[in-house]
Every structure is written in C-alpha cells, then in structure tokens.
Design a protein around this nucleic acid. Structure first.
Lengths: 347, 347
DNA sequence: CGATCATCTGCAATCGTTTGCATTCAGGTC
DNA sequence: GACCTGAATGCAAACGATTGCAGATGATCG
C-alpha cells in the first residue's frame, strides 16, 4: 500500500524570511547571531523560526561552508565479509569514540569495511562526507594509510607506530604490556609459554616482541613458540587451540594476543578436559568487559580505551584545525584475575 | 605548529570535464552510466576520472537530489549524561544495524542523546542529515515519537507496541518471553520470585506483565513483588540488590528485566555471601554476549537482535520508498544455562 | 539536395545556505 | 539643504553536483 502523503516538507530559510518580511540573508545572519542585524529584529526572526519549526538544512550549509561537522569512524573487519560487527574490542572503542566526538558537537559516521581496502580509504576521503577519518586498527593496511596520510591530514589511526611511518597513531604500549603479562607467568613458575596470535599484524607483532623480551630476561631463558590462528575470531582461535592440544607440543601457559582469543583458548582447553589455570595458565590482552566475567576471570593487559578514544579525538580536532599532532603511546597495566593462578599483586 | 599545507583539494567534476574536453553534464551522465552518452566517450571519461582520483562530492549530490543515503541511529541514554555508550545491548544492536544498513549502501550516522529529548528528534528530522531515523528503545519518549511519526514516515523504533500508537516498532515478545522465564523458575520449585526492574518503561512494563501472568497461572498462585533500580545501569542495580538483601524481605529467585542488571544482581548476591543458583536463582532478559560467559552462566530470554535489526532496516527502507510498514513482534526464546539451577530443557 | 530523425552534447536552472559588496536610510554636522 | 557617517539590509554569486530542454551533429531517405 503506497502512501506518499503525510510527508510535510520542512520549512526553508526563504519561508522564514517571507514570514518575517526580510531577505534570507538577514535570517541567516540573525540565526548565526551576527551583530549586523538589529537586536530587536533578530529576536523577532528567532521567534518566528522557532514557531515555524525551522531547522537549517545541514546539507546545504555543509556544501556552502565546505565542511560537514562529521567524523568517519572506520572499522576494518578482519573477519569474513558477512561477519557482523561483534568484536567487543571494536565495539567498546566505538562507544568511547562516539562519546568524545558527539561531545564536540560533531556527528559520527560509521563505516565498516573488509580488507583489502583497495582504494576505499582514498574514496572516503575524497567523497567529502566527513571532516576527518578515524581508523580503528591498522589491520593489514599500513601502505594505504601511509599513502593517504601524505596528503590528507585529518587521519588518526588506533594502532601501533611503525618505523618511518607518517600517519598519526594512538595506541597502547604493546611491548611493555606484553612483557608485564609474560613476566607474571614466569614469576608464577610457568616454563613453556606459548604465544597465541598472528605477529604479522603490527600491534600483535609488538606484543610478540614484548613476549620475547620477557622470555630472554628470565633468569633462565625460556624457549619461544607461537601459533597463528588464521584470524582474530573466536571460532578460528578455538580450532587452533584445540589442534595445538591434540599435538605433541607440551606447554603450561598461553599468552594470547587478545582477550577474545584468550577466552576461546580457555574454552578449548576446558573442552579438552584440562583445567585453567591448574594445568594451563592463560593471559590475555585488552581487558574487554567480558574478561572480568569469563570463567575463570581473565588475567589480562588493560588498554584504557576511554583514554585512548579521547587521545584520538583530541588529535583529530587539532589536525582539523590545521595543527600537527604527534602519535602517542599509552601505558598498559596488568590486571590480575584468576586465569593464571596465584593471585599476587604485580608491582 | 601550524601546518596548513599538504591539504590537496580533491578534484571536482568540472576538472574532469576540462580534462576530457566535455561539459560537466556529460561527465555526470557518464559517471551515472546514462545511455545518453556514447559508450566510447563514457569509458574514456571513466578512465580519466579514475586517474584523476575523482570522487563525486556527496554533499553537493545530496543537496541536489534531496536525499542523503544515510540513516540516523539514535541511542537514548537512560544513564547519566557523561555515561559512555557501554550497554552491551545497545552496542550489539548497533552492530547488527550497521551491518544491515551498510549492506544496502547507506551510511550510518550515530546519534547519542540523553532524555528528555525535548525537541531533539524534530530537529534531527528537519536537519536533513539523514533519510530516516531509527530509535533504539523508546525510553521515556513515547510522546515525542508519536508526535514526530505523525508527519515523518521513515521512523522506526525498537521497542514495545503500545495501544493507540502510530509509530512503527519492532520488538521482542516481551510478555511471552518473561512468562517463559518465570514459569521456568516456578517449575524449578522457586516460591518467592522478585521482579527486578522499572515497569514504567514500556518494554519493562510488558516483561512485568508476563511475570505477573506466570505467577497467576501457577498451580498455586504466588505473590508478586518488584523493586526498581533507578536506572538500568550495572551500578544502580548492584546497589539496589544489595539493599534488598539487607532488608528483611525473603526471596529465592530473581527475574531481572535485563541481563546487565541480572549479572549485577548475581554479583551483589555473591558478594553478600549467598550462592547462585543454590540460595537464589537468577534469570535475565536479552541474552547479550556476556550472559553465556558470566559465572554462573546466565539463564535468560533470548532476543534475536540480528533478526530484529534486519526487520527494522527492512521496514525503514520500505518507508523511505513511500510504502507503509507495520509494527512487528518477534518471538522470544528461553535459553537455559546455570543461574537458575536444574538444567532441564524448556519445551 | 533538403527534410527528417536518432543520437549525442551543452546550456542553464536548481537544491538551500552563506557572505562580499553595494545599497538604503536615518540622523547628525556645517 | 547638502554632505557625511554609520548601521542595517538586500542582491547576487558562490558551494558542486543533476537534469529538462534545446541545439548540434551526422546518418538516412524520399
């Protein structure tokens, strides 16, 4: 049943102008609070506009002003194309970003993409839909980011700084955080610690570095070993860990590159009839909301996403204003819960 | 350090036109794939445009076409103004919505607001920033929604249908779901079941109805009782449950109006030295991701958010196309885990 | 060869604002 | 009364695309 009626066209500025018996210019100035229009007349116009339910058309205004008061937030989905946006890390980060951005009166335009991006980022930038682009996680797209950053300044990326990189990143101290977690495992007497994650992704690579550093610094250096679940999804992680358990490789601890896969690892270990932390200790990275509620509660490295989001948005607005804003690395703290056993406080 | 340089202005259509030695009209038509421009010329223009990195300016195009290919998703925060967007329910729903919307090539404009909305919704509608508005949860804003829906059709709300309501809602069968959960508790032998939530919110009200119905239908009718945590936040729920435990009211089960407050209730009960489900059984509503991982795992009523999101978006696009789309209520299923004890299958 | 037609192309108006510049008008000064 | 000043207003040109209409071009046919 078609029903085109009932769509009442919103009032435009010219309507208000007619109503007030002035020109659109004057209405525009009155609305903007310009001192050029007499106080009495301004108030009259404002009243009329309010009564008419007039709201300026954002699209027209944006076109004229060449800005949008909108920030794009891009989430590259490392998962399958059809996979919904469920990764708790992204989703928590998104929440904090939305907060910080809307606080400044800007809108948030959500963009989900599945790598390889191809020319997607350049297109987004050129489309003029937003005044700036925030990318959550550099994924495998370092080259594209670098290329676009060369001419487009309002680009801020959550992730790891790499050598000779020119785009602005905000991220956690991945190597320091990982070192803390692995040192914690060593202190608890674990000898065969597996790194669980794909070090070819920039952030994970740094966590792997921290892992190696902790092993080397141990009073008696330990052997390193890592396994690579295909993607950072719960399913692939479960499968990879199950396979590891079936193999003849022996280990008494797992340092997982993210909480999501840490929790999957715990489930796989439990499903295989072993106990966490008694048989195998598991530590994660991120401290997503789930971590505190998993069973056993996950010992993990905390990334302060609220702080991170604020840092990102701060830099974004600096760059929009035309100033430079350098990359920054935020501290990472170990949060000790139950999944590694022996609750001792980390200094 | 100011740094205005480096912002290269994106190519506009006129540039491409000059490059190709034709008029902007022709470029526009070529890009749109109009049969009016000769095939050979079209391909030539497309090639030139690609080389020049040209992307049509969305703002200008939107102004001309009077549409935005963008949907606003509004999240009314019942919480404090400063509270970040953390509620897992919203966030999961948002993910699915973003999926369904981007799949249709539209953008998602995220809007967080804190009630009372005042004229916020009319303003959003009149601002022309989006072609439609999705509101997640009617919160306390029934009147505003009704008013706006009277003249603005592309408005779809996640929530409960109320009598004489004219706006389009998509929601779960709240009363049926609640009945199932409470019947489950009764079947397990619980006698004093507390309803935990604020029935003055439309959706919660229906869950309360379902709760009452189950009590009345019991072979020996049970006494009803509900408590109202100020808001649906984890903190207030924890406080409210702690207070209830300190009071002289005795109870052996809790039916919580959402998983979030159910989990807080469990924590409060555990903190008070009682055991779930042994001393007190707890059932929730929503089946957020956390529910499966809480300790003990939460028995809850599942809302299929993916299905819900798809239903919302479907209706949205129907309404944008000028057709009517009626409200719908989706089925709710009980998911039995550990927080109520006695794992028996629900029919 | 001129008329007719199909096919392609460009002109110019339009979407709803903002703003530089010109204009108007009131009031004051000599 | 002519002149100037300053404040308040309106005109018209942008912003960058789309599209109805008219015009140009070349082919076809009588």
């Amino acid at each position: 049943m078609k029903n085109k009626g009932g769509h009442r066209a919103p009032a435009k500025m010219a309507d208000v102008a007619t109503l007030a018996g002035v020109s659109p210019s004057t209405v525009s100035r009155a609305l903007a609070g310009s001192p050029l229009v007499a106080k009495k007349k301004r108030e009259e116009i404002l009243k009329l506009a309010r009564e008419a339910g007039y709201v300026v058309n954002t699209t027209a205004r944006n076109l004229r002003l060449k800005r949008t008061e909108t920030i794009s937030v891009v989430i590259p989905l490392a998962h399958e194309a059809s996979q919904p946006l469920t990764d708790p890390f992204f989703v928590e980060m998104l929440g904090y970003l939305a907060d910080a951005i809307t606080q400044r009166g800007f809108g948030v335009l959500l963009q989900k993409i599945v790598p390889p991006m191809g020319d997607w980022l350049p297109r987004l930038v050129a489309s003029g839909r937003s005044d700036g682009v925030i990318v959550i996680g550099q994924s495998t797209e370092h080259a594209v980011l670098e290329e676009v950053a060369a001419y487009y300044r309002p680009l801020v990326v959550w992730g790891a700084p790499t050598v000779g990189q020119n785009y602005c990143t905000v991220g956690t101290d991945n190597v320091g955080g990982a070192t803390k977690a692995v040192e914690h495992l060593i202190r608890l007497g674990r000898k065969q610690i597996v790194f669980f994650g794909d070090p070819s992704l920039p952030e994970i690579g740094l966590r792997y570095e921290g892992y190696l550093a902790a092993l080397e610094n141990a009073s008696r250096p330990l052997e390193a070993r890592h396994i690579v679940p295909a993607h950072l999804t719960a399913e692939t992680a479960f499968a990879a860990m199950s396979e590891l358990l079936r193999s003849d490789i022996s280990f008494d601890a797992v340092f997982a590159a993210s909480d999501l896969i840490a929790i999957s690892a715990i489930q796989a270990i439990t499903a295989a009839g072993k106990s966490v932390p008694h048989d195998i200790a598991v530590a994660g990275f991120d401290d997503i909301a789930l971590a505190a509620h998993s069973n056993p509660a996950l010992t993990t490295v905390r990334q302060d996403l609220e702080l991170g989001a604020r840092a990102i948005v701060e830099r974004m607005f600096q760059r929009i204003a035309g100033y430079d804003a350098a990359s920054v690395t935020l501290p990472a703290d170990l949060v000790i819960r139950d999944s590694c056993g022996g609750r001792t406080r980390d200094p």
